[in-house]
Design a protein around this nucleic acid. Structure first.
Lengths: 153, 153
DNA sequence: GTTGAAACGATATAGTGTATCTTTTACTCC
DNA sequence: GGAGTAAAAGATACACTATATCGTTTCAAC
C-alpha cells in the first residue's frame, strides 16, 4: 500500500500545478482508493465515503472526481470489471507510459507491474502477426493472488 | 470469418452431444455472431436478430443463449467492453485451453490469437514475481487493427 | 460586496446484466 | 393422437454502471 500522507501531498501539488482545487470531496475519493488497496467500483467508493465522512457522497460526484483524478494520473480505470484503483506510482518520480495490471479475480487486489520489454515485445509481435499495428498502453490481466486460490478458470 | 455452414453443423452436433436442443433462437444468436465477425453486445445481437428474423428477440433470451453457447465453447465473452464473439475454433478440431484476444478499440474487430508459449511464460513469470500464483486462461488485449489507426492511447 | 468560474448537488436517463415467474414448445409415454 | 413433463422462451422487475443536463454553492479575484 502507498504511503498515504505522501500520496495526498503529491496529489495536492499536482492539482495546484493544474490550477484546480484539491477539495474535500476529491481528497475523500482518493483517500478511499488508496486505503482500500483494491479495485473499487464508483458506487463502492461512494459508500465508503459515506461511511468515512459526515455527508452523503453522490455517485455523480464520484464519477466526476474519478475522471479528474484519472486525468491527473493519480488513479487508473480498470476496464476489466469496471473498477478504479489508485496509481501505485503517485508518490514516486517514476514516469510510466505503460500500465500493466494484475487483478485478483477473488479479492480484487490489484498489482501494478512492469512487464519486461521482452514480454511486451512478444505481445506486440503476436499482435502484429494478427494484423494489429498497435496495442493499448494499458494491459489488464486477471488472475489469483497468493492469498486466493483459483476457484475457476 | 468462419465457414458459416460448417460452424452451424458443429454447433448442432455439440448441442446434440449435450442433450440439449439447437433451437431457432439459439441458431439465430450464433448466426448473428458468426456473420458479424466482430464483438457485439447482447443488445446489439438482439437487434440484429430482429432485423434478420420474423419475430422480436428478447434481450433476456439473448443472455440465456449466450451463456449456453459459452458453456459449449461456441462463443467467448469478452470482459473488456462487455461483448461477445464467436469462437474462431468452432469448426476445427483444435483444442484450446487458452484464449487470447486482440480487440480493435475502433471497429471492435476481434482476432483470436495463439500467443507463443514464451510470451505466456513471460507473463506468468511477471505475475508470479508480483505475488500472483496463477493468471486467467483468457487474455484480452485492446489495440487497433490495420484498418484503424490509433486515435487515442 | 460583486462577479464569475469552478465545484458540487440533484434528477433523469441510457446501457448492461440478473432474478423470477409465467407461458409455450416439443418430446415421451400411453 | 392426447396427456404429462421438462426444456425453452417470454415477460416483468430490478440492480449496477455510467452519462447528460441543469440548478446551486463555494471561493478567489477584483
Amino acid at each position: 500500500m502507498l504511503d498515504y500522507e505522501k500520496a495526498i501531498s503529491v496529489a495536492e501539488q499536482k492539482c495546484a500545478d493544474r490550477g484546480i482545487r484539491f477539495t474535500r470531496r476529491r481528497k475523500q475519493v482518493l483517500a478511499v482508493l488508496i486505503k482500500a488497496d483494491a479495485a473499487l467500483s464508483a458506487y463502492e467508493i461512494a459508500e465508503l465515503c459515506d461511511a468515512d465522512g459526515d455527508s452523503k457522497m453522490p455517485a455523480m460526484s464520484v464519477y466526476r472526481i474519478l475522471e479528474l483524478l484519472q486525468d491527473g494520473n493519480l488513479i487508473h480505470r480498470l476496464e476489466l470489471a469496471n473498477k478504479y484503483v489508485s496509481c501505485s506510482h503517485i508518490s514516486c518520480s517514476h514516469k510510466h507510459k505503460q500500465s500493466q495490471f494484475l487483478i485478483c479475480d477473488s479479492c480484487r487486489h490489484v498489482e501494478e507491474i512492469d512487464l519486461s520489454s521482452e514480454a511486451v515485445d512478444a505481445l506486440r509481435v503476436a499482435a502484429s502477426a494478427a494484423g494489429f499495428n498497435s496495442i493499448s498502453s494499458q494491459l489488464e490481466i486477471k488472475g489469483w493472488c497468493a492469498q486466493c486460490q483459483p476457484s475457476r478458470n
